[in-house]
Nucleic acid binder design. Structure first.
Lengths: 233, 233
DNA sequence: ACCTGAACACCGTTCAAGT
DNA sequence: ACCTGAACACCGTTCAAGT
């Protein structure tokens, strides 16, 4: 259980951020940051399947059950890891003349950070993003959009659309990149051609390589930003 | 292993669709459809955590290890379940005058289907969607976009953006709805207000209720479709 | 071709006990 | 306040054996 008991929390993902953090390295050898860092490393090596409390504890030179002083569940670890990835988003430069350049910069930065950790896109899609680093970036997006003229429900909707498009896109990209990438694409293409009667349009598509991802992302982002611009008038 | 051996497949999600299906109910009591249906039911009841091969087998009146004749892994079950959800997307009506109405209809239908099964958004985001039902719907989207004038890389990008925005959005929505929905939102709001110094823009937001989701979705969809329209010129 | 049954090597989580 | 150690009730997956 967490140090300050939190009135019987339901097992909601993201909840770790709403509980108070035990004082960093008061005396013990563990703290949230060390745990988050080791968790990211483990996930980078083998994805969610490789993240077990026992191996994580081993890395930290501690017993598996010790982790329960700092986190309430394995799910908390995933929340910590995702927020650490958000912390990798490049710091924004000075505000551009056009608000959409600022938002585009954020979207590209988020994509890069999530792609660096192929497990993170799917996880970011699956849980509320309430960590301090995620909130800090959200704050900046809200500010940019506010400056652009969005307010009220339109502001919330625009910010959500921006994040959700990036996260959804990266999750899909990471899912394909899995490993046998080229083989998978080849098998897929063959499968579609074999059923050209059922999927004529899909079967007619060329077998595009992985080099198509960035261009695809730029196009999708351009469409969304243009549409948001149009909504402002 | 699957009946027709498939040359040492790597453990890639989505791969079940590229292997041949054992003849439906040749003599045994199990087949892909029955397994898919029971899997969806189990996931509806308790999410991914509730899906174990043993309980699933129990529902089907069979031993856990019997499932391995029909699927290669637990992951295959998730692929089957997600594709079943895509099968629930409402059939499209006759083509509208405006292509974007057709695409909007698809997006709303996909959102509804995914929301009916709160586990499915996150799963759809995390794996290639190669099932027959998912491909059938993709085929229709491609056809609509082609009719609108998209071709080549622009066509692929547009189709991907459409799906990824919906899936990303629904995954986020489902993650929030988890259960203590109102409590979670309340706690979140309180947390933001408590750190108004760090997140001034976020702290200033009103505590919106769950009724805001559909409107938010419509706004995001409108922005994307408008932007795609603009890209055509 | 399809299902059984035993077995392997793990899991996350609890709780009382230590310091 | 923080970590240990034993224990509980599970997992997914394998493989030889049945029919």
């Amino acid at each position: 259980m967490s140090p300050k008991k939190a009135d019987s929390e339901p097992p909601m993902p993201g909840a770790i951020w709403l509980r108070s953090r035990p004082p960093a390295r008061a005396r013990g050898s563990l703290d949230r940051d060390a745990i988050a860092c080791a968790t990211v490393a483990l996930l980078d090596e083998g994805g969610p399947a490789a993240l077990s409390l026992r191996t994580l504890a081993g890395r930290l030179g501690v017993h598996a059950t010790s982790l329960y002083w700092h986190v309430a569940s394995r799910d908390d670890l995933l929340d910590l890891a995702v927020d650490a990835v958000f912390g990798e988003i490049a710091e924004p430069g000075p505000p551009a003349r056009d608000w959409s350049d600022d938002v585009a910069e954020f979207m590209r930065g988020l994509r890069q950070a999530l792609l660096r950790h192929p497990w993170s896109g799917a996880l970011a899609a699956s849980r509320p993003l309430l960590g301090p680093q995620a909130l800090e970036r959200s704050e900046l997006v809200y500010a940019s959009l506010q400056r652009a003229g969005f307010a009220g429900p339109a502001l919330t909707a625009a910010a959500a659309a921006v994040s959700n498009l990036v996260i959804g896109t990266v999750a899909a990209e990471s899912a394909w990149d899995h490993d046998g990438e080229t083989d998978a694409r080849r098998a897929m293409h063959h499968h579609l051609r074999a059923h050209a009667d059922r999927y004529p349009a899909l079967a007619a598509l060329p077998e595009s390589g992985a080099d198509g991802w960035p261009e695809q992302f730029e196009r999708a982002m351009d469409a969304l930003l243009r549409g948001l611009q149009a909504q402002l008038s």
